[in-house]
Design a protein around this nucleic acid. Structure first.
Lengths: 199, 199
DNA sequence: GTGTTCACTGAACAGTGTTTACTTTTGCAA
DNA sequence: TTGCAAAAGTAAACACTGTTCAGTGAACAC
């Protein structure tokens, strides 16, 4: 099956070109024609490898999720659940600040509607979320919190870090001087950690 | 100045049509041609009233900000700063859940880049944010919190409510059954309030 | 009545995602 | 090696998008 290998190869090149264009010029700039030009194909050829643009978008999301997984991985091995939780949050924010384009793609870009149907592209996201909730559960089990509502605790913490990164990525922090933004985010993270301790 | 009045009238009709289309079909569906058709004009006519689509987008944002201001207004008059703060947060979330399209427009839609330049359309947003920060400051002054870092406190709370609404609006809560989502959001808000108390 | 201004149109331009008929290349069996 | 079918790729079209611009017709001023 040499053909299969070649097919996979072309899919890779399309994906790489798409990712590069997305990073450079955002979702708008990532046009089928631009991708085709970049890999020296005609626009129609793309459709021999991806059903439509939304399918290409799923594939891109999957890529981004893998990068995030790797970025956060270092926290996974930490023994103590509380420290693991804190490090996980820190790494999550770090990913957002270092890869705003990918964060945007994963959590902020309004993907095509069919996106919802596609389960496969959510496996990584769900895995990450499960790990996160499990870590919170471990903390609850070890009585790190007064509250035992694992779900609400997890969701609350997620809201905070997601809100924090979103406001930054989508440039809604213009009321703060640019130089202060990252420091403010750091203070805020330290604060939520403190708050979580008496939760 | 009959002409001026008529001009304002047409701008209103354009804006109303744009808002309706945005609510129905999102940013994509809000095309110049659709707007023009809706008010019985040719596409080119729109440009006699708005420089380009981004200017129309500012105007729409301004509208949305006004709706939000009114939605949240009831919290403004509360005497006690802490209760005012909590009610403000509650109303903020309520706005997001009841007007996901407008929330999207205000905080999640990636507007045209020139958006950043346009100061005017941010006046309402900045006013709202100032009021919020001032309320936190009032709480700090009255020693409601142990911490005195007003900026970080305000930012942290904002991150939480924004994250909470965003995840809902952009449909990133799929891991939770639909029926539970709103309740979970409620529990999370109660939790952040409790957390803030020992902040 | 003539001239000017203004609101508006319709066609064009360059871009988008997508489909389809057609051509080229490839792989394999006779 | 030849012949042929299947796969791979192209070019052109369709229906969209934002935007511009020459032209049209009506209203108004002198």
């Amino acid at each position: 099956m040499v053909t299969e290998g070649k097919k996979e190869d072309v899919k890779r090149r399309i994906l790489d070109a798409a990712m590069e264009l997305f990073r450079e010029k955002g979702y708008e700039g990532m046009s089928i024609r631009n991708i085709a030009e970049q890999i020296g194909y005609s626009p129609g050829a793309i459709y021999l490898y991806y059903k439509d643009k939304s399918e290409l978008f799923y594939a891109l999301s999957f890529e981004a999720a893998a990068v995030k997984r790797d970025h956060v991985a270092s926290a996974m091995g930490i023994e103590d659940p509380w420290e693991r939780l804190v490090e996980f949050g820190r790494r999550y924010i770090d990913f957002g600040f270092n890869h705003p384009d990918l964060y945007d793609l994963l959590f902020l870009t309004r993907g095509p509607m069919a996106y919802i149907e596609n389960q496969e592209c959510w496996t990584l996201g769900i895995a990450s979320h499960s790990f996160f909730v499990q870590t919170v559960q471990d903390c609850v089990d070890k009585r790190y919190f007064k509250s035992t509502d694992t779900q609400a605790i997890a969701y609350t913490l997620w809201c905070h870090v997601h809100g924090l990164v979103s406001l930054f990525v989508r440039d809604r922090m213009r009321m703060y001087p640019e130089a202060e933004r990252e420091a403010l985010a750091g203070r805020s993270f330290a604060m939520i950690v403190k708050m979580a301790e008496c939760l």
